[in-house]
Computed example of a mutant assay.
Amino acid sequence: MFLSCVTFPPPPSIFMTAMSVVSVVSMANGGYSETVGKHMQYSKFWKVNSQKSAAKQAKVSSRNGMLMLYTPAFFAGLSSFWLFPDDGFRFLLLKSALTFHFFKRIFEVLFIHKYSGAMTLDSAIVITLSYFISTSTMIYNQHLSQGLPEPSIDLKYFGMIVFLLGIIGNFYHHFLLSKMRKDGEKQYKIPKGGLFDKVVCPHYLFEILVFWGFAFISQTLYAFSFALGTSFYLMGRSFATRNWYLTKFENFPKDVKAVFPYLL
Rank of each mutant, 00 (worst) to 15 (best):
F206T: 08
K189D: 00
F226T: 04
Y233R: 11
N243V: 01
C5P: 00
K248S: 13
F211K: 08
R242K: 15
F239W: 10
L148D: 10
G37W: 06
Y42S: 02
V210E: 06
T71S: 13
C201H: 07
R90G: 04
H203D: 12
V48G: 08
S152P: 00
D197Y: 05
I190M: 11
Y172I: 04
K192L: 12
I112F: 02
P261E: 08
G166M: 06
D255G: 00
S62A: 14
N251L: 01
T17F: 08
S178M: 06
Y233S: 05
F74G: 04
S130L: 13
L195A: 06
K114F: 01
L177P: 03
G166A: 09
G193R: 11
I112P: 02
L165Q: 08
G169A: 07
V162L: 13
K59S: 06
S80E: 00
Y233G: 00
L78T: 05
L165D: 03
K257H: 14
E250Y: 01
L177E: 02
P12C: 05
L144M: 14
V48M: 06
S116T: 15
G194H: 10
Y172Q: 15
K257D: 07
K59T: 14
A76K: 07
W212G: 06
P202C: 10
G193I: 11
K156I: 00
I208P: 02
C201R: 04
N29E: 07
P151A: 04
S4L: 14
